[in-house]
């Protein structure tokens, strides 16, 4: 099986504090993965390091056979590795339509911009209704839609979503989960960070549990844990009843 993304022994952090401690994960061609685990243990840091916002101190990242360990964000985006960050506020003083048009910034994305913007408006009709609205006037759910919409405009060959449903109402969460499932069905592989393991299992093929900047457990949908085991994973043996 060909590896689409291959990360080995990754170490990274902020200044003196190390967050990733030799983490290794991979995605094979045609699959999607999920990342879960307690907050502050390196999931978002991992995505930032992959997309080039953070430079790793050790380890390697290969995308589609090419080493991108030390690439800066423009090169990573040009390669098609797209990251929709957590709680993304984007650009408050920019209108929805121009934000989406701007998101097709790389040469490869620009060629598909006209088709993709229509797809984004079909996927998120709320954005189509608010084309001329400034991003700062959007609700949390609408911002999340715009963020995912922007990621789609970048012409992703692998899409990384960091807690796309964080802080949303159950109804909105369902709406976004549906949209993400639709994106996945179009054949875009995903890396999704979420706390909700059941949600992740419904969306992806394999899950990594990340703790203290390392992979502590790997789960595939085939041997999916039940609710109680998930509780045990999060809170330890004593926490589950």
């Amino acid at each position: 099986m060909r590896r689409l993304l291959d990360i080995t022994g990754l170490r990274a952090g902020y200044g003196a504090s190390r967050v990733l401690n030799g983490l290794s994960v991979h995605i094979d061609e045609g699959e999607s993965i999920g990342l879960f685990g307690p907050n502050g243990h390196g999931k978002s840091t991992l995505l930032k390091t992959i997309s080039g916002l953070l430079r790793p101190t050790a380890g390697s990242i290969a995308f589609d056979g090419n080493d991108i360990t030390t690439q800066r964000p423009p090169a990573v985006v040009a390669a098609g590795l797209i990251h929709a960050p957590q709680g993304n506020t984007l650009f408050g003083n920019m209108r929805i339509a121009e934000t989406l048009e701007l998101a097709a910034f790389s040469k490869r994305a620009k060629a598909e911009a006209t088709r993709r913007i229509e797809e984004v408006y079909v996927l998120f009709p709320r954005l189509a209704e608010r084309k001329q609205q400034f991003a700062r006037t959007l609700s949390g759910g609408e911002r999340q839609m715009l963020s995912i919409g922007c990621a789609l405009m970048c012409a992703p060959r692998l899409l990384m979503l960091d807690e796309p449903t964080l802080g949303l109402s159950p109804k909105l969460k369902e709406e976004l989960a549906g949209a993400i499932a639709k994106i996945s069905k179009t054949g875009v592989p995903l890396i999704v960070v979420e706390q909700d393991v059941e949600f992740l299992l419904s969306l992806t093929d394999r899950l990594y549990m990340i703790e203290h900047g390392e992979v502590v457990r790997e789960i595939s949908s085939a041997n999916a844990p039940d609710h109680e085991e998930v509780m045990r994973l999060y809170f330890g043996a004593e926490g589950a009843h």
Binding site: V77, F91, N93, E98
Partner: peptide, 17 residues
């Protein structure tokens, strides 16, 4: 537009390429 974007949110701008 990229100049305005960078002024408002550097990380988000970088992640759009």
């Amino acid at each position: 537009r990229s100049l305005r974007a960078v002024g408002q949110n550097q990380d988000s701008a970088a992640l759009l390429g």
